[in-house]
């Protein structure tokens, strides 16, 4: 290291920078859905923003963790894609024809789904957009996503190498 800066600060800075990009991504998706497809966004835009920030934190923490545990850029890419789709499927992001989300379908699949951060992000969005709930109601989901972020970032700080 060329300067006496703890490595977690650099990782945190990287995460914060990518959160900006994630927020832009969320804003574009919801903005287009709302403007062109008249999708309701609920009564709590502040709640949506807070959930999006926490979601960005979780996803970028996961990205940094993948970079920390992968041995090459191709491996990181593959792990990221596989994890991205597999966790999205288990979390209920790909269940689009059912009125009941995966995390509410009961049984083992509900248990598995609720172990995935995607499900908690979906749950938070669903509460804000579909059920007319407010920021206080999504605090449990925000807490769980933050917990995932801390775990991912902890692994990243532990395993991250700044040099090849």
């Amino acid at each position: 290291m060329a300067a006496p800066i703890p490595r977690w600060t650099i990782i945190l800075a990287k995460i914060l920078a990518y959160i900006g990009l994630v927020l832009a991504q969320v804003a574009i998706i919801f903005g287009v859905a709302s403007l062109f497809f008249e999708m309701p966004l609920g009564d709590w835009p502040v709640g949506l923003i807070v959930v999006s920030i926490v979601l960005g934190l979780t996803s970028t923490s996961m990205g940094v963790m993948i970079a920390a545990i992968a041995k090459s850029d191709k491996q990181a890419d593959s792990i990221g894609m596989i994890l991205g789709f597999a966790l999205a499927a288990l979390g209920g992001c790909l269940v689009m024809g059912s009125p009941v989300p995966l995390y509410n379908q009961g049984g083992t699949i509900q248990l598995i789904s609720r172990l995935i951060p995607h499900a908690h992000a979906l749950m938070a969005f669903s509460k804000l957009i579909n059920q007319g709930m407010g920021l206080v109601d999504v605090l449990p989901q925000i807490g769980i996503l933050l917990l995932y972020s801390v775990v991912f970032m902890g692994i990243a700080v532990w395993r991250f190498r700044f040099e090849q």
């Binding site: 990518y18 919801f30 497809f37 990205g63 990181a76 999205a88 790909l94 992000a121 669903s126």
Partner: peptide
């Protein structure tokens, strides 16, 4: 309302792959 947040969360988490690649 269910389709769009699902896709949004999917894309957000897929971007973690780009984060990892960028760091590498």
């Amino acid at each position: 309302s269910s389709f769009v947040p699902g896709l949004c969360v999917l894309f957000v988490f897929l971007s973690s792959s780009a984060v990892a690649r960028g760091l590498f």
